[in-house]
Nucleic acid binder design. Sequence first.
RNA 1: GCGCGAGUAGCUCAGCUGGAUAGAGCGUCGGCCUCCGGAGCCGAAGGUCGUGGGUUCGAAUCCCGCCUCGCGCACCA
Length: 562
Amino acid sequence: MNAEERLRAEVTRAALAIGAPEGFEPVLERPREHAHGDWATTAALVLAKALRRKPADISRDLVAALDATAAGVAESAVAGPGFINFRLDAARLAAGLHGVLAQGRAFGRGNTGAGRAVNVEFVSANPTGPLHVGHGRQAALGDAISALLAHSGWKVTREFYYNDGGGQIERLRDSVHARIVGAPLADDQYHGEYVKDVASAFVTDLAPRLGVSEAEAVEHVRRRWRDDAGLRDDVRRFAVAYLRAEQDADLKAFGVAFDVYYLESSLYSDGKVASTIEALKATGHTFELDGATWLRTTDFGDDKDRVMVRSAGKGGEPTYFVPDVAYHVTKWERGFTRAVDVQGADHHSTVTRVRAGLQALGIGIPQGYPEYVLHQMVTVVRGGEEVKISKRAGSYVTVRDLVDEVGRDAVRYFFLMRKGESQLVFDVDLARSQSEENPVYYIQMAHARLSGIFRVGGISAESVTGESVDWGQLGAPEERELVKAILDWPSLAAGAAEALEPHRVAGWLLDTARLVHLWYHKHHVLGEPEPVMRARLALASAARITLANALGLLGIAAPERM
RNA sequence: GCGCGAGUAGCUCAGCUGGAUAGAGCGUCGGCCUCCGGAGCCGAAGGUCGUGGGUUCGAAUCCCGCCUCGCGCACCA
């Protein structure tokens, strides 16, 4: 039992002893003011109504009923409107570090997932261009959420869904064609420079296959384009493959890897789109209108019904959300009873639709499936001005640009330090100019400094096990605060995983790094009397382990030296 | 017009699911290097938590109205 559990158990016992109703669970919280102690409980405030007594009186009785030794408390005080503040016994508090050292890399892991499978889908870009900053935010978020869930005992599959079907791909193909033959681009085509790269790469690839010069290959495309479906398909496939390779390289540079790449086109080729349409029709939730087939999504909370198969005049093809539904059915059928989709908020209109489709099928998929993490847009500022991101207009800041300019670790941290619902302003110049006083360097420096203690002392960090340590030596305020931050880590990580909010980890890291610097600045380790040194080495090792674990979840390196 | 999200220090943002005198980074101003790394530390200034009501012992947090900003509202994806 750790210090928190011990305290909670004793407060609960005492509360029941003075008349709290059966099943009462006291709330323990960290007081904002350190002067108020290590823990506080609002038990008396909450009980005031049920007991029909003043909170202050209840607090007094509760403190009197408390067994301080059993609770591990050095001091209890009634404060404010009825808070009870506890100061833990220094030795009992610091002894919690023993468990940290014993668990090492496993410290902080939880098991709420109990080995169950969860699918986390993120990035899922169309292969119509390089990954831009919005994808970068999503990659950082999705990867960190996956890591957090795995850390909480879930069996995580990271998945990337390629929207390689639909009209956008045709638009890409035609844009490449225009660049090959030097035709003008329509407004709704892709204007980016990369399209020129794809075009010239295609020509370079085609010429030797035809056994002609590149100029002749261009002429070949010009002449045959209209009537040669095979050629058009060739260009489409080449462009998609080219851009997928680019995206993969960008993700690799960013340190993000996927377990599964799922192709939208495969849903058509293996008949899943067709079978989903049939299944939906069989449910009676569909109807025909104006030559199109509609799904009555209003039966499931949507504000209007949606077309699922276009009328003949519009091509007669399924709309995009049918493969989306079919895709999520495969997630369910592949055994993922839980699925998390990380998407930009500009796609939030799909949420209701996809869920409605899954509900309409009536195959036992729960209502809230899949869960969505929607993040707001990233605004890029460069040279003091906003860079408008538009694939079609061709103005861009890519993930690769950012990684090259400010480094992988800093980009990851910047994207993760804010909650997803907040819009994010990424000032490229600022990120660059700050590169030496970036929060991520500050955090990594804390880890490097702790590592330095062991390096300089010629002590293996692994040899610090916490055995025969006099924990009472860690009584200085800076030490108590650092100890508490370390011991808070498991519940913080669990909370971040449950809420799917990696930014909490980023915040904890910054706070804890500050405590490390403060402690380091004030207290020496090497060369101190033996009992002091042993205790401080234990603290340094525990802090180092915990920082490394937290950084690892965010995909940020924990360097030994910088 | 409807839906979703956001309005908190000069700037960028936290605020742990309703708690005490609302915090951090950057920026500004002023201090600290015989040291296990100064890529650090200490101090100061800076707030009507968009706004008006409501709920209760207690609200930045929950409910309602209003105001700004972003995103979405296709037989595009």
